[in-house]
Amino acid sequence: VKAVIESGQVHESRVDAFKSVYQMRVSPRYSDDQRIVGAVIIFFNNTDLILAEQRLRKSEHETRGIIDGTSSLIFLKDISGKYLAVNQAFLNYFKLEEAKVIGKSDRELFPDKFANQFRNGDLEAILKRGRIETTEDFALKGGPSTFLVSRFPISETDGANPYAVGTVAVDISAQIEAQAALKKSESLYRGVVEDQTVFVTRFSRDAKINFVNTPFLKYFGGSKDDFVGNSLSRIIDASDRDSVLSEFKKLSATKPTVQLEHRFAQYGSSVRWIRWIAKAILGPDDSVAEIQAVGFDITEYRQQTDQMVQREMLFSNIFTYTTDFLTVYRLSNNGELL
């Protein structure tokens, strides 16, 4: 107060009271003849404003922590293309310093081709007034990295002209490489199974077919469209169907394989026998994601086995009911009786 009276200048300062914050303004008080005769003190209660400012700073600090903590590239530019903000991942990826980025355009930071790529994406988001997503290659680190890029205009109010463009870029190079490796692996797998003479099929636990190889189609007759998406039960004889499908459903992480046989009635032919060796393909949680089965025709084997059983039954009956004495001898390799 004394300083205001002596100088005639208005003084403002913050006053912290118990659970409250005030803005104090001290102004000189003049007499009718314009002499300073005292001071006027006014207190403004700024508690709500100060608390709101503190919350805003805390929120900004937390938001900045989240943005800098993510591995995604996040940056903000005004509509003229000047950088307003970038996160730490952006600086690390492009090996730049924040002070040398803010206020600069893409043309001042990157080669023309890359700068044009960025600027064209920003302009598209501004013109469309909405978010756009693209897959782009950032070839600035010796080799291309593929990013999923999302750009979106930022406006003060809905429908107003945007004043900035935000961008979030996620590096999906690893996913792209994994997909390429998977496609190559599947291509090699299909090449191998197509060269086999056995039947190869893959199906779900409810026997819905996902894949069949060429020998499968040649043997059972039809095209892939006739089988893929349909049930495997169509090639299983009705008398064996329930038991076979039940065995497939029993496959699990503790019982991943099974061997079974069933009959198949070929059109215009006799009944054939098929043997399958099935294996469960497990998912990340050890649940059965799919079943792969390799099959082959064992009709001749079954016929020979049946004939042997019939002969054994015949000999058994003869041995049991004959009145003659029977002796069985075993011969050595040189023909001597043992």
Rank of each mutant, 00 (worst) to 15 (best):
R107F: 14
N87G: 06
I66N: 10
V228E: 04
A293E: 06
V244M: 04
Q266H: 11
R330W: 09
Q310H: 12
Y83H: 08
G81Y: 05
I176R: 14
K113T: 14
K183G: 02
F227S: 05
F264Q: 01
T70M: 09
S150V: 10
R14W: 10
E133D: 13
S155H: 04
Y83K: 04
E6Y: 08
G121C: 02
R107T: 04
E124P: 01
I154K: 09
E336N: 14
Q175Y: 00
L96D: 02
S27D: 12
N334M: 11
D297E: 08
L232S: 06
L188T: 10
L91W: 07
E53C: 00
L251T: 02
L232R: 06
A174W: 00
T157W: 06
R241S: 11
N210F: 11
Q196A: 15
Q117S: 09
R205H: 00
F152K: 04
I126H: 06
Q303V: 12
Q117D: 10
F43E: 12
F203I: 05
A265K: 15
K141Y: 03
R330L: 12
V86K: 09
K184Q: 15
L73A: 09
W273G: 05
S270Y: 04
V1C: 14
R64Q: 14
I132H: 09
I281P: 02
S187E: 15
N87K: 07
I318Y: 09
T135W: 10
Q88R: 14
S71T: 13
E194K: 04
N333P: 13
V228Y: 07
D206V: 10
V40F: 08
L84Q: 10
R131F: 08
V192H: 00
I154A: 10
I126R: 05
F94Q: 09
A164W: 02
Q175C: 05
F75E: 01
G65H: 02
N116E: 15
E194L: 03
